[in-house]
Design a protein around this nucleic acid. Sequence first.
DNA 1: CCGTATCCGCGCCGATACTG
DNA 2: CAGTATCGGCGCGGATACGG
Lengths: 128, 128
Amino acid sequence: MEIPERGDCFRADCPARDVFGHVTGRWGGLVLAALLGGTLRFSELRARIGGISEKMLAQTLREFERDGLLIRRQFPEVPPRVEYELTAAGLEVAQRLDHLIGWIQDHVRELVAAQRSHEATSRRASLS
Amino acid sequence: MEIPERGDCFRADCPARDVFGHVTGRWGGLVLAALLGGTLRFSELRARIGGISEKMLAQTLREFERDGLLIRRQFPEVPPRVEYELTAAGLEVAQRLDHLIGWIQDHVRELVAAQRSHEATSRRASLS
DNA sequence: CCGTATCCGCGCCGATACTG
DNA sequence: CAGTATCGGCGCGGATACGG
């Protein structure tokens, strides 16, 4: 397929949509944001990201390695040690993700309040 | 549940993770980013976001309305007209998403090149 | 035009067991 | 420690039909 100079995530067939899908996948954003603090081992990542399974962590890491957003560094030791680190591209993406995550975290109460208020409204409406 | 002053998306049980899930859902980011240009009708949104079905668009819009990120405005006309617009909170989220999307779109060639190069590497590795 | 309702297949993802 | 292999449920999401 022809790769345009600039992608368009709004088109279904654009490779940019593909990468966007990885980044906004269920675990993608959390993995990248977790690595903003610096290099982490597999088990450290797993501990930091609540609820992720080994399978999904491994799968997500492989996707991002393929996309060139992080690098995998393996040490010839026993027990084995593997570290993951953002590439320059990965850092750019992770920083933008972090801004998004940060805003949401800072406004949790406002968001939850909106949810509650909306529930109340729809209840009143359904009482005809 | 106790709502902390500041959320933590890395915890599995935090409401912030919940909203983060909506925003980074399959269609969430594209819907919010599409509304950055201003108010849009249902059919306009559907046309702009390649591949989305009516069902998923409606579902995504309802989630965000509940989260207080957008408002739904219905006009008493025939044929009916419904417009969707970002709230102040939605604008904040959408802008951050747009930065993320923009970077990916601007670097689509770099990303695709990384994917190709990685395929070549893993092919060589598997040839033992 | 703007949805909702229903069905249902596919693939995501968790659980478990196993390997180097 | 850092994974891979395999299985299976179930929910996401597409297709279709219908309603206001």
